[in-house]
Write a protein that binds this DNA or RNA. Structure first.
Lengths: 188, 188
DNA sequence: AATTTAGCTGAACAATCGTCCCAATACCCT
DNA sequence: AGGGTATTGGGACGATTGTTCAGCTAAATT
């Protein structure tokens, strides 16, 4: 499998590989996981069809790489969002509610893609470590990660996102705020 | 859903339609939504291939019917489960924890299927009413459905199920119990 | 009994799928 | 500069897909 060496060789291929992963994520946002084919991803990336088969042994490998990358991005986004809310002095609940509203509103497609990949991990054990990645990131931000209340909070966030995706009208931050506060209440 | 006409005509066809829906659900449990094809469903039901195209105008229609049926079944299961736990005198938290452990343990395949259909509803507005069905059922069981704490509880249940599906080792009722209690605490 | 109708089925279609193969190219190391 | 290897690109293969269609069986109607 294409892996950059310590001496810096073989960098060219890694770039295209990354472009294919990004293209795959865009395809999933637009058409869902079922829309991912060698051809659709290659077309989205603007490269020949067989480029996908060269860089990824199978379609499955491409999905694994995409979920891994996606989880990493999501983790970084969450970290940034919480960081910036801390700087602006907003309450934790308000920061979380705002983030959730973004996720089910403007970033809806992205959130759908991430949960489809998330659910895919339920069927393919190879994907599970990557799927658990963002839970780990959130956990690392907690003051007391082992606390039962924190697990309840994390579950609530997952549920709110999932439910927000099947609302005809995505919930606003104002609507989400009291629920987030209820989930956060046992933690203080 | 399967409904004989007043004059008794056209009962046979409705039966086969229901069989196809059940077969589709079994296929989703086994291979996921992506495994649903006209041929795989027909084979699972033990009927000729084109029987699926005769009873459902398109594959999409079959998925819509399957989700609708599945949501109805799940709603009935939850109702029964809560009923029986009330009779046995167990605490609500213990009953919920037990139900969740069943869902991510022995009934794992079924739960995966339901969440895949659930997530499918995020992309197809036509599926959303059916997807919201089981939330409605749970809501109808609540003493005070509008309460914020109850929404938090429902979200937490969704999240616990989703997270339980990507665990290598499904959580036990004993492990889930304290989290469920934390989610339930604000409600009393 | 004859005929109409609903229900069902097998064969076949074009389209798309994943993947393989081979030639052309770009890059690195000696 | 030259040889070797990683990468790219086009074409093609067999398999599977959703769907169509004409013909079949059995029941309902007359």
């Amino acid at each position: 499998m294409t892996r950059p060496r310590a001496d810096g060789r073989r960098v060219r291929g890694e770039r295209r590989r990354a472009e294919l992963i990004d293209a795959a994520l865009r395809v999933i946002e637009r058409d869902g996981v079922s829309g991912v084919t060698h051809r659709s991803v290659a077309a989205e990336a603007g490269v020949p069809t067989t480029s996908t088969t060269y860089h990824f042994a199978s379609l499955d490998d491409l999905l694994v790489a995409t979920l891994t990358s996606s989880a990493e991005n999501m983790a970084a986004d969450i970290r940034d969002s919480i960081e910036s809310s801390r700087i602006k002095g907003a309450s934790p609940a308000a920061a979380v509610a705002h983030m959730l509203a973004e996720a089910v509103g403007p970033r809806r497609g992205r959130t759908m893609a991430e949960y489809e990949l998330y659910l895919l991990a339920a069927r393919r054990p190879a994907l599970r470590p990557a799927a658990r990645r963002w839970l780990d990131v959130l956990t690392s931000l907690a003051r007391n990660p082992d606390e039962v209340g924190f697990r309840a909070f994390l579950s609530g966030v997952d549920g709110l996102l999932l439910q927000g995706l099947i609302d005809d009208e995505p919930p606003t931050a104002a609507e989400l705020l009291p629920v987030v506060e209820a989930l956060l209440a046992p933690l203080r």
